[in-house]
């Protein structure tokens, strides 16, 4: 598979939310307004890409060479947690503007299964380093697209006149399902 089609596949065709279901918690939790959704999406791109670089190197250089593959889960989650802390401290000091915009989302990202999920998928699919990077950027871009689009839809849904029981997360999930149907259409793309 060439890199461009890998990119399009990971961003749109196999969209991380609508077909892989990774990152569903922040997707439902932080999508009430378009600008917070965009902030979360950008923070996720940032962390997923960084985390993928580091976990890929650790897997190949340490775990594979020492035969310690069974420590993958522990290593990866610790790397991600440490990385998020580090990024937070770094942004606070050197880019206060960016920190104000993204800071509140960073702690939430540690338990965002998208980050760990992409790191593990890069390894199990036996991607090369370049392919892993393309997959990470594409997948996280797909997350941004999904969460921003969804926030737009939700804005309207929340103001709709609905039966009391369906209000909130129930109708949000149904709306996400309808968007997922739209994304199913992309699976017809010949890449």
């Amino acid at each position: 598979m060439n890199l461009i089609s890998l990119f399009i596949t990971s961003a749109i065709v196999n969209n991380i939310i609508f077909s892989q279901f990774l990152g569903a918690c922040p997707f439902l939790g932080v999508s009430k307004k378009i600008d917070t959704a965009a902030g979360m999406g950008i923070a996720v791109i940032f962390v997923i890409t960084l985390a993928s670089v580091i976990t890929y190197i650790v897997q190949k250089a340490i775990l594979d060479t020492l035969g310690l593959q069974y420590l993958q889960t522990i290593m990866f989650i610790l790397i991600i947690a440490a990385l998020v802390q580090f990024v937070e401290m770094f942004l606070k000091k050197s880019a206060p503007g960016l920190y104000q915009a993204l800071g509140i989302y960073l702690p939430l990202i540690t338990t965002n299964c998208a980050v760990l999920g992409v790191a593990i998928i890069n390894i199990t699919k036996e991607y090369s380093f370049i392919e892993a990077m393309v997959n990470s950027v594409g997948t996280s871009l797909g997350f941004l697209i999904a969460i921003v689009l969804f926030a737009g839809v939700r804005d309207k849904v929340d103001n709709a006149d609905l039966p009391e029981s369906l209000k909130g997360s129930a109708i949000s999930l149904v709306a996400a399902g309808l968007m997922s149907i739209a994304f199913l259409g992309f699976s017809g793309l010949q890449l």
């Binding site: 609508f18 077909s19 279901f21 039966p163 009391e164 997360s169 129930a170 399902g177 997922s180 199913l184």
Partner: peptide, 25 residues
């Protein structure tokens, strides 16, 4: 088919939560 495809997961879970809300109300 849609029920076991990704959209079905969202829609059916949404309706289940709606049902639970209704019963508890």
């Amino acid at each position: 088919m849609i029920a076991i495809q990704p959209p079905g997961a969202f829609i059916i879970l949404g309706l289940l939560i709606g049902l639970v809300n209704y019963l508890s109300r």
